[in-house]
């Protein structure tokens, strides 16, 4: 196969794969009256911005809540997982193997089951339908992954760097803060990106733990749209387009981190 031919095939395959994404964008610009046209309008010519206007009118609070939840989850995940990664990679206390094992297992527990347990606990503790409660629950998706990524990354930092710091009289905490963290930028970025994306995309915890809250994330915003038997598909798809922005930005800005994160979670190098 020649290379130009391969490029052509590659473009066609990508176009097929991304067709649903295109269709989402197309429908988001389609007029209500054209929504059930036969044949369907394949291109958003003389489209409408009605859908996006509806988003501005109705979905902004949801988007704001999602941003807040995403940011909170990132902070909590980093605070918990970076020190743990350092300990597992460089200080290696007894029980390191067992803890790594627990972290791997933790990632495999279905979210819906965690949600049920959280629901029972939150109900009695009175944190059901609160943003901090949801942040805490969302962080359970990212913390085990974060520890594993930080451990893997920090194992690659040369011991000489740490020894030099300790000869200079730096405490372990000082070493961690002033030596380890600054060189771990890539790991911090990877973990933050995924923690944000997972919190932003979470539906399971949102619907079980925040279904009746005053502040709900965008996933519930879309879900209510669909559930209300809303036939305004341009508004639903416009919200979906907006909800996809973080994922898209991530891919453009940090593509190599994304691929690294997917692989690191599964296969050891």
């Amino acid at each position: 196969m020649t290379k130009p031919l391969k490029t052509t095939i590659g473009v066609i395959l990508t176009a097929i794969m991304l067709f649903p994404v295109y269709w989402m964008v197309n429908v988001s610009f389609t007029k209500d009256t054209d929504m059930r046209a036969d044949p369907p309008h394949l291109f958003p010519f003389n489209g409408t911005l009605e859908g996006y206007r509806a988003v501005l009118d109705q979905q902004l609070p949801y988007l704001g809540t999602s941003l807040l939840i995403g940011a909170g989850t990132v902070v909590l995940t980093l605070l918990l997982s970076a020190p743990a990664g350092f300990a597992l990679a460089k200080l290696r206390p007894r029980g390191t193997g067992a803890l790594n094992f627990v972290l791997l297992i933790a990632q495999m527990i279905p979210g819906i089951i965690m949600a049920m347990g959280f629901y029972a606990i939150y109900l009695r503790a009175g944190v059901l339908n609160t943003v901090p409660g949801l942040i805490l629950a969302d962080s359970t998706i990212a913390v085990p992954f974060g520890v594993l990524i930080f451990t893997a990354f920090m194992s690659g930092i040369p011991d000489e760097l740490i020894n030099a710091a300790s000869i200079d009289g730096a405490s372990k905490f000082r070493t961690f803060r002033s030596v380890i963290l600054p060189v771990s930028r890539n790991a911090i970025v990877t973990v933050s990106l995924f923690a944000f994306l997972w919190a932003w995309s979470d539906f399971v915890f949102a619907t079980t733990l925040d279904g009746g809250g005053d502040y709900q994330p965008i996933t519930l915003g879309i879900y209510h749209y669909i559930g209300n038997n809303n036939q305004q598909w341009n508004a639903i798809m416009a919200t979906a387009v907006i909800a996809s922005i973080p994922a898209t930005l991530l891919l453009i800005v940090a593509q190599r981190y994304v691929a690294a994160g997917v692989t690191a979670g599964a296969v050891k190098d």
């Binding site: 989402m24 996933t219 639903i236 994922a247």
Partner: peptide, 14 residues
């Protein structure tokens, strides 16, 4: 990678 990164609610409703 796009389909994998989209929120599930987005893919599901599309």
């Amino acid at each position: 990678l796009v389909p994998w990164l989209l929120p599930l609610i987005v893919s599901a409703s599309t």
